[in-house]
Amino acid sequence: MTSPDPDGLLAEKLLRLTRRVHRIQKRHLQQRELGITPAQSRLLRVLAHFGQPPRMADLADSLEVVPRAVTTLVDALEASGRVRRVPDPANRRVIRIELTDDGRAALHELHGARRAAAEEILAPLTDDQRETLGGLLDTLVGAAPERVQRC
């Protein structure tokens, strides 16, 4: 009989935690009745970190998705009035995406939902454990190749 693979078990725990985090965040989003999916939420957060309205390709790079996925997200967010497409002032053929006032208000609500989800997820940990976890996550995130802008 072979012994368990410790790295494999750890990877499975991380995947289970990730799924749990997504479920809890989704529940907190639904409770606030924003009508925003987790993917739309992520796009809004990424969009808010650009200095000037980005192009769709910039959003796709930052989100690490194909441009078509960004188009679908932007279409839905534009239909709800949270983002708008605007022509680039230097090149009218280029379209940029910007937050609207409704989008900024949604981001404020999303921040509250994420904070509530984080409090729920981290509730079993002591302050020292949270600090240790933060350091470990910094190490893991720092070890990954960074090719995109993070928020």
Rank of each mutant, 00 (worst) to 15 (best):
T37N: 01
R27I: 15
A106E: 11
G8F: 05
A123K: 13
H111L: 09
E131Y: 07
V148Y: 02
C151D: 11
T126R: 09
D127G: 10
A57P: 03
E119H: 08
L140G: 03
E33P: 00
V65Y: 01
M1K: 07
V86I: 14
L29K: 01
A143D: 04
R150F: 05
D75N: 01
G112A: 10
R96H: 00
N91Y: 02
T72W: 07
E131G: 08
R23A: 09
A143W: 02
E131L: 12
E109S: 07
R150I: 04
P6Q: 12
A90P: 01
G135A: 12
Q40S: 06
G135D: 12
A57F: 03
L137D: 04
P145C: 07
N91S: 04
A57C: 01
L107R: 04
L107Q: 07
L107W: 06
I36E: 03
A113H: 04
G134E: 12
L44N: 11
Q31L: 14
Q40D: 11
V74G: 02
H22T: 13
A123T: 12
R84I: 00
H111S: 11
I121A: 04
R84H: 00
I121C: 05
R84W: 00
L73Y: 06
L63A: 00
E64T: 10
D101Y: 00
P54F: 05
I36Y: 03
G8M: 06
N91D: 15
A69K: 06
E119D: 14
R147K: 09
V65C: 03
T100P: 06
H108V: 08
H111C: 05
L73H: 01
G135S: 10
Q129I: 13
H49T: 10
E98P: 01
R150L: 08
E119R: 10
E119C: 06
R114D: 14
D88K: 01
T18C: 11
M56A: 14
T18E: 15
Q129M: 14
Q30K: 08
R93W: 07
L59W: 02
V148F: 02
K26M: 05
R92L: 11
E64K: 06
P4E: 15
R42C: 03
L73K: 02
L133E: 15
E33F: 02
A118I: 11
L34V: 09
K26L: 10
F50K: 03
R93H: 11
F50G: 04
P145D: 15
D127N: 07
K13T: 09
E109V: 00
V66M: 04
A39Y: 10
R96Y: 00
A48C: 03
P6V: 14
L77K: 00
A48G: 04
R93A: 12
L17T: 07
R115W: 00
D5G: 10
